[in-house]
Design a binder for these strands. Structure first.
Lengths: 304, 304
DNA sequence: CTTGATCAATACTTAATACCTAATGATTGA
DNA sequence: TCAATCATTAGGTATTAAGTATTGATCAAG
């Protein structure tokens, strides 16, 4: 009837044991229960279902057709319950779920890429969504809750955010292969004083922009930015086309754009930070962060 | 933990409503429950699972990752419970299950065949297993519990069996088409006094055998059985081959064996009976029997 | 900063019911 | 017919779910 709301898992647990033993006494013993209680519960179950589940002959108990049908369902449901409990616990411990990661331009080619790959291998049930975004958009997404964690090159302190260091990345001068300055293996920043520059707008990554400006200031000049470009890919492309020179994070080198060469800048590096919203952290995120911190520590020891 | 044994469907029912409303007060109202009771039960559920299911901010309730995972499972399980209850009730009312029917030679070509076909159409979820068997084997199978119901042509009274009439079937004389007697449209049994006979052994169907013998006795002779044959198919084949004459139930005519003609015997008919073991009757069987009785009643009125 | 409103959690009581023990009933085998 | 073996019924107890009243925490408005 409509009475199935009275059905409880207890009924299923008791029933399956009786159906297995086909003997109320033994079943009761297995359940650490008195035999009358068990009989009562089974009777109640039959009442709820509106169907007799056992043929009770005084010396033999047998399943009815309805009993056999219900037995199949009951066993399956009890298995499903265990599976559900397990799945929930897995989710609770961060072994399953969805992880939404943001990262700055090209960062997947750095040690972060390896860290993510390792994490994916060890947590195959976690779906990892990756989005390459500029710093400002990552921060906005993290604050909106659209992103769990962001990896940015120039995190400014922000009261609404949790910011932790992840790694450091050297800065490089990038210039056209055919450029006269490209002949030298080592190149001071000051050599770029009279060159035309290609650079991203300040709003894209304020701190990194600031750092480039400082480097130039310390070398005694203000860069002559002929062309602005919002995408690193474009910036490097313009350098490769001979439009100008620029300074980029080391990972960009991995792109190995035809016609562009890189020169190190001693002691110049940018901080890569992990950014997330303050407040409660979902288990998947928690697990990812702790794995990432371990990986970062290792990388530090190994030296990038 | 190992504590999932404390989990009850009540927890799932309460949880799903809270997850749906995302508000303990409204959920409690929907469940006709006080808010504290509901809070307590949800907390208990979280304790059993070892996982927090809701993030409770004082003015907002939200599902955790684990909660979302559990919600999916919970909804599915509650649906499964309803399905299981329904399936069990269906089985209890005889709408599902397996029906094992036995029937005497050729009886599927009679009104029984139509009855079974009708039943199958109306109860598509019942698996009907059909076995053509001689009377003695049907009775043995019914007693063993290997057969639910048998349809036999000559049921002797038996204390271990339930025997009910199902239909009557006329008896026919069968003889070779080229036989001199085949010229007559009507043929008295006495005309077969001097003919060689083909007949089944008495053990195959004692009552039918007895009846044939009585018909001959009443016609003033004892049949000269030249050839015994356990299968009707063979018997008719032998008649068609000109080995002898015989008497068969009318349904055999349906086989329309080349070279065999049939002649009616007025007022001679055999009873077809339904045979089953005494004691409890499974719902499927119950449903089949009542359907069959109705069909039989209709056939009686209609006249075979 | 305070006040009021909104919810969930806590403390404690009451009511429901699952469980126990003891006795009864029913059937089968010796 | 007796004894044995189970399941059911009866009545009391203990567990626990549910109820009431209250507290506590958080946020919005004055």
């Amino acid at each position: 009837m409509i009475d199935s709301a009275r059905l409880e898992l207890r009924h299923l647990r008791y029933f399956t044991v009786v159906a297995d033993e086909l003997h109320f006494g033994r079943a009761a013993a297995r359940l650490s229960l008195s035999q009358p209680s068990l009989s009562l519960q089974v009777k109640q179950l039959e009442d709820i279902l509106g169907a007799r589940l056992f043929d009770r002959h005084s010396r033999r108990v047998a399943l009815t057709d309805a009993g056999r049908v219900f037995m199949e369902s009951a066993l399956r449901m009890l298995r499903d319950v265990d599976a559900a409990v397990l799945a929930t616990q897995q989710a609770n411990e961060g072994h399953t779920g969805t992880l939404r990661l943001g990262f700055g331009p090209m960062l997947m080619l750095s040690s972060l890429g390896r860290a993510v790959q390792t994490y994916r291998a060890r947590h195959p049930s976690v779906q990892v969504d990756l989005r390459e975004l500029p710093t400002s958009e990552q921060i906005a997404a993290v604050l909106r809750g659209d992103l769990d964690v962001g990896f940015v090159r120039d995190a400014e302190p922000d009261a609404r955010l949790h910011v932790e260091p992840f790694a450091r990345e050297p800065l490089l001068i990038a210039l056209h292969r055919g450029h006269p300055l490209a002949a030298a293996k080592r190149l001071p920043v000051s050599a770029l004083a009279r060159e035309p520059w290609v650079l991203f707008p300040r709003a894209i990554a304020p701190l990194l922009h600031e750092q480039v400006m400082r480097l130039c200031r310390e070398a005694g000049f203000t860069p002559d930015v002929r062309q602005e470009s919002r995408e690193v890919y474009t910036t490097v492309g313009l350098v490769g086309a001979g439009v100008g020179v620029t300074i980029v994070p080391a990972t960009v080198q991995r792109m190995s754009w035809k016609g562009v060469v890189y020169r190190p800048i001693p002691r110049a590096s940018v901080q890569i930070s992990i950014v997330r919203a303050i407040g409660p952290v979902r288990p998947v995120v928690e697990a990812f962060l702790s794995a990432t911190h371990k990986a970062a520590a290792k990388t530090m020891k190994a030296g990038v």
